[in-house]
Design a protein around this nucleic acid. Sequence first.
DNA 1: TTGAAAGCGCTAACAG
DNA 2: CTGTTAGCGCTTTCAA
Lengths: 336, 336
Amino acid sequence: MNDKVTIKTIAKIANVSHTTVSRALNDSPLVKEKTKKEIRDIAERLNYSPNLNAKALVEHRSFIIAVYFTDLNSGTSPSFMSEMLHQIKEMLPAGYEIAVDSFAGLRRAKQSINLRFDGALVVSQSVSDDMYIDQLAKTGKPVVVLNRKIDRDDLFNYASDDYSGTVTAIEYLLRMGHRKLGIISGKEEFTSSQNRLAGFLDTLQKHNITRNDNWVATGDYSVQSGYNAMEKILNSGDLPTCMFVSNDDMAMGAMRACEDYGFSIPEQISFMGFDDSAYSNYCIPRLTTIRKPVREITNNGIKTLNSLINNESPETVQAMNIKPSLVVRESVKKIN
Amino acid sequence: MNDKVTIKTIAKIANVSHTTVSRALNDSPLVKEKTKKEIRDIAERLNYSPNLNAKALVEHRSFIIAVYFTDLNSGTSPSFMSEMLHQIKEMLPAGYEIAVDSFAGLRRAKQSINLRFDGALVVSQSVSDDMYIDQLAKTGKPVVVLNRKIDRDDLFNYASDDYSGTVTAIEYLLRMGHRKLGIISGKEEFTSSQNRLAGFLDTLQKHNITRNDNWVATGDYSVQSGYNAMEKILNSGDLPTCMFVSNDDMAMGAMRACEDYGFSIPEQISFMGFDDSAYSNYCIPRLTTIRKPVREITNNGIKTLNSLINNESPETVQAMNIKPSLVVRESVKKIN
DNA sequence: TTGAAAGCGCTAACAG
DNA sequence: CTGTTAGCGCTTTCAA
């Protein structure tokens, strides 16, 4: 019940004006050290804690960083989200809170974004986020968009170059002798799915490999959807020698399906994932995959947002499309 | 830059006082329908959005729900956290924001909790959280503690009965003919680890089975730690016929170790996990485990918090220790 | 049904 | 170095 302790309470006890208390507590050079110390002591003794709403009202900032995901529910892998939140919280100046929200949630509740934030970090998956990103941008407050390359140059934007990552993946598979390649792609409306699919298709074409439509399936990035998609492919008769799966979660489901249908990995079918999730080094067999540069994206984003909030010009570049890297493990067999 | 639109702006245009605008926007019965509509229209046209800081200051509430985890970094499984956040956000009344934070973070930064929240949801793993829970309780605001049974009866508290869940698990293993049982337990300071270990030890004792210290190892709930712990056990010479692993993540690591050392599961070593994580139904073999009632815990917690915030008395009971259930899959073999 | 005035707790001129 | 005064945008008496 100590929310009744205000700077005036302290002022009365210290026999000074509440202004002096405010200054002392904010470590203003305008207050004598001795007075400061007295005031701080009283504040501590009374367990004073400033009313952030009042402070926010007058300072025109709220000490809140908004973190928006496309969807809290599906599509954003839990480990990505959890790593993200941890990083953000870790790198933010003390006193800042992070408010987690999702565009999908806003849409469902027909709400519009609220204006109580000093900066926004958007973890975007889909072009459908653009209208919200635009609303955020219109507030004039710092906005950094992560994860997906956006089509505007007035915002800071750090993403993973999924297209080039996929090209790397497929060219590796070709080098390993595979020509019969299949794909399970992710949520169709997600930019990452589109880029990964395009990388796959373009690379096949470049190497004059005709694709087999029986080996093309679509999931939604969930483990179960990978299972279902693979089941469909396995039932289609003619089999690929290798599957490129748009994320590790679906790859895990797909490999499970192979196991259930009696196909051995990588002897009969090889697998290439995407993301390098925490589990990909422990599944059976260990999954060869493309490492998405999550850490780099996040760090850049937060550093930039921090500078922006403090009105400094960020040290990093405005936009970055970071190249993922190949992680070779056990799920791709060299053939011929 | 429309943050300059205030109720006074609207008042001027509508030719009424700002008081009336405030009332209209809050749908007060004191305002004539016609006036209300006019005002609402103007507000919409001007893209008005209330200054939540001002509102919060005068109403003595902030429209923020604090969500505290023990640690954002380790121990809390990402899928648990992500499901939690999604549920919370989904069930909260429109207009509320969730501020995500961790006690570990507070400790590291030597910060104390800030008072800007209308209610707090604590996802607690460790008794070391108690001092912070106490600080939260002292604010007099609604606090609901989830996940871990706490030692006080003035707060609402919903947890999983890990002890009884483990007893269920071990008795099942005994029924399957296993007598040579090992365990990999989790973070020692976590209550869940302690309860799961105690359930294991007590059940063995109850059935007069002497435990083999070579088969007792400790991890930290991470996949890698499960791998390391299992490696140690495999190297100890004499082997158990079955391992109880304190969570599914570590079980996945431990099974990986068996694979690497050439032991087949469940033929040579059986595995029982805990949690029923999203991956446990897809790993090879599918993991037999104990389903932690995450959904139930969360739902109860949020419902209660909602009532508390609205000054209603919650429909649910004050404390609940929900029993987990056995999920039989493929990783435990019946022997003899 | 409306408006005038006060005040939430804080910071920021301005004056001493 | 310190205090007086005003005001942030909103809700809420109280009076009309």
